[in-house]
């Protein structure tokens, strides 16, 4: 009975989040005193399996099939179902990526199990594993236990474990060829693409003012625009602002938008949901302006102002103008 980590790859390399999942898997395995293995699926994946073998793992499975060349939920769920039946792990750990969100719930359901998704921590108390998840968009944490017999399925949040914490070592490789039928794959995926070239490239911006739902109305956006102008900063936004078409999608920061790393990121009326944080955590200095002192954004901020943005932002803009003028 082991921990089995399912790794994900893109463009011929393992994704960083796969290594984070390996680190999480190794930690859980250590706490339970059981071995940790890993798997990667696709077509011609032996090189990727080789890459995984640099970690200290009992076994690395190369799940190999032509029908796994392009990702489909039917193909992946079936392939990993067969692997899990073959390897009989106690825990199956996956990175909480968009692809995992797409197939892992299906995989867990095949075993009449629930997928415990987007986990940020785990610990073992009296031999029982407890997993921490965020509820209410990061405002509360819950420790969750899993009942029944293994296997248990867990996906781990981006950034919750560190890729550089993976213990290095040697692993034994094994090729696993699942029996897959082309007829059982119902979705036909086309090539991934990016929308036409963006007019704004936030990734190179040095200064960014990002506005969130706290701004309440399109007509109030000028407050953030004025602040950005006074700073000489680019204007960015959280998802709801772009969903409402108050600003174009290309100004969205986060997991489904742009990833930015400016010198200064000023978050105005943004709560700090994980999908936003992953896009701006690399900023050098973060300022948060929010009326809720418990807003998760303050966890990643260097400077915080707890207050009403409608009061604070115009004052800040005026101060900056004064500072620049003087």
């Amino acid at each position: 009975m082991s921990v089995l980590v399912i790794a994900e790859h893109a463009d011929g390399a393992l994704r960083r989040m796969s290594w984070e999942a390996v680190a999480a898997g190794q930690e859980l395995a250590r706490a339970l005193d059981i071995p940790c293995s890993a798997a990667v699926a696709g077509h011609n994946v032996s090189a990727l399996a080789g890459e995984l073998s640099s970690a200290r793992l009992e076994r690395v499975y190369a799940v190999e099939h032509q029908l796994l060349d392009a990702y489909t939920p039917d193909g992946y769920a079936r392939a990993f179902e067969l692997l899990v039946r073959h390897a009989a792990p106690r825990f199956v750990l996956l990175p909480h990526t968009y692809q995992v969100r797409d197939f892992a719930p299906k995989l867990a359901t095949r075993f009449e199990r629930v997928l415990l998704s987007d986990v940020i921590a785990c610990r073992v108390e009296d031999g029982k594993a407890l997993f921490t998840r965020q509820l209410f968009q990061g405002k509360l944490n819950a420790d969750v236990s899993l009942g029944g017999e293994p296997p248990y399925f867990i996906s781990v949040q981006a950034g919750a474990w560190r890729a550089d914490q993976v213990s290095q070592g040697e692993s034994q490789a094994e090729t696993f060829v699942p029996e897959l039928a082309a007829g059982a794959i119902r979705t036909r995926p086309e090539e991934p693409f990016q929308e036409a070239k963006r007019a704004v490239d936030l990734s190179t911006a040095e200064l960014i003012v990002a506005v969130g739902r706290g701004i309440q109305d399109k007509d109030n956006l000028h407050l953030a625009e004025d602040l950005a102008r006074a700073l000489g900063a680019e204007l960015a936004a959280s998802r709801p602002i772009c969903d409402n078409t108050w600003l174009p999608m290309e100004r969205q920061v986060g997991s489904s938008g742009q990833t930015v790393s400016p010198k200064l990121y000023v978050a105005v009326g943004i709560s700090g949901a994980i999908q936003h944080l992953v896009g701006m955590k690399g900023s050098r200095t973060v300022v948060a302006i929010n009326k809720d002192p418990d807003a998760p954004i303050f966890d990643v901020a260097d400077y915080g102002i707890v207050g009403d943005l409608f009061e604070v932002v115009p004052l800040l803009t005026a101060e900056l103008r004064k500072a620049k003028g003087g």
Partner: peptide, 30 residues
């Protein structure tokens, strides 16, 4: 079926490194 059970719900421990700027709104801005 064997369920996932919430054993404990709590406010997240704050990894707070932020310096909260205090004062009147005017002072905070300055």
């Amino acid at each position: 079926h064997p369920a996932a059970v919430i054993e404990r719900l709590y406010m997240p421990p704050r990894a707070r490194q932020a310096q909260i700027v205090e004062g009147t709104p005017q002072e905070k801005a300055a």
